Simulated scan of single mutants.
Amino acid sequence: MEKKKTFDVKSLLKISSNNKKLLGMLILVIIVLSIATGGSFAKIGQFQLIAYLFPEMGVLALGMMLAMVSGGIDLTVIAVADLAGILSCLLMKAIMPADASMPVQILVLLVTLAFALLIGAVCGLFTGTLIARVGVPAMVATLGASDIILGIAVGITNGSSIKELPSILYRVVNFELFGLIPGTTIVFIICAALVAFLLNKTATGFKIYMIGSNATASEYSGSDNKKILTLTYMISGMLSAVSGLLMCGHFNSARSDFGKSYLTPAILICVLAGVNPNGGVGKVSGIVLAVIILQSLSSGFAMFPSISDYYKNLIWGLVLIGIMIINVVTATRKKKS
């Protein structure tokens, strides 16, 4: 007699050990910052600010995670975000009619988004081709490609800002659902859901994990590693482009240095989330928790004027190295046991 399938609530609510640690860390961060600021950090407005700001860094971290899961790294995410934002804003200014109606403005915004995704995909194709087909190591390829892409962005703008953008981008980015949930958070949820679906529910996602775990075994199993790697960096580029548009909407302008402070945090988020720098391991749920923790710390630091941005960079670097040391020591102990 066939056994009936039952709905397993326990398996649905099961949380990984790494995510339990991240949840504990998040609670600890909120408690400590709330005490240190005399309760100011625990206000609803502060949490709304965190929800508004973290998606810019979070979407970049999703792209970085895909590259790291495949066994590489993508140092072009900032440059791609800046270039896609600049070119998209130029396009939007050029094609937006004066006194355009709301439907027309929305249509122009959708065209701008499609164009940004195209720019991100092209940049990712260039980087992915260098890595997968030419054979350049990921760190060297993405570092060189980053300089090229950033150079193009600076050349287009001459280092100045693109201002007087159509108001639709600013309004969408600053939109609040039910007056509570920022539009940027909605964008991040959509991106995170799509990446989670890709990794967990598709053959392509399985192959990305396979390549990161053992590229040789993946090749022998029939996987086209070159194609999958190229696609991985193209998706990373598209996510970077989305982040670039969020930054432009946030500042209501476009510039070639908006995301310059996000590279180290993006890598830190991935490491904190449990993504293995050697590839094969990483979950979107960890990225979500890690980026909220990091943005909470960043927003908490901003409440103390004595902590300058230079100290923040020092702190991020120390935390990144510290977490990697802890991960290596933990992995070594597990192997010995």
Rank of each mutant, 00 (worst) to 15 (best):
E2K: 06
F7A: 08
K14S: 11
K14M: 12
S16C: 02
N19M: 07
N19S: 12
L22W: 03
L22I: 09
L26K: 03
L33Q: 01
K43S: 13
Q46N: 15
F47P: 05
A61E: 10
A67F: 04
V69S: 01
A81K: 04
A84R: 10
K93M: 14
M96P: 00
P103F: 12
L117N: 05
A121V: 08
G124N: 05
L125K: 01
R133L: 07
V134A: 14
V136T: 08
V136S: 04
V140G: 03
A141Y: 05
G151D: 11
S161Y: 12
K163Y: 12
S167R: 14
R171A: 07
V173R: 05
E176D: 14
P182D: 09
P182T: 07
C191S: 15
L199K: 08
I208D: 01
N214I: 03
T216F: 11
T230F: 00
Y233D: 05
M234A: 12
L239I: 07
A241D: 05
S243H: 00
L245N: 01
G249S: 11
H250N: 15
R255K: 13
S256I: 00
D257Y: 05
F258V: 08
T264W: 00
L268E: 00
C270N: 07
C270F: 06
N276G: 01
K283H: 10
K283S: 03
V288N: 03
A290R: 02
S296F: 02
S299T: 14
S299E: 11
G300T: 06
G300R: 02
M303K: 07
S308D: 14
L318F: 12
V319Q: 01
I325L: 12
N327I: 03
A331T: 14
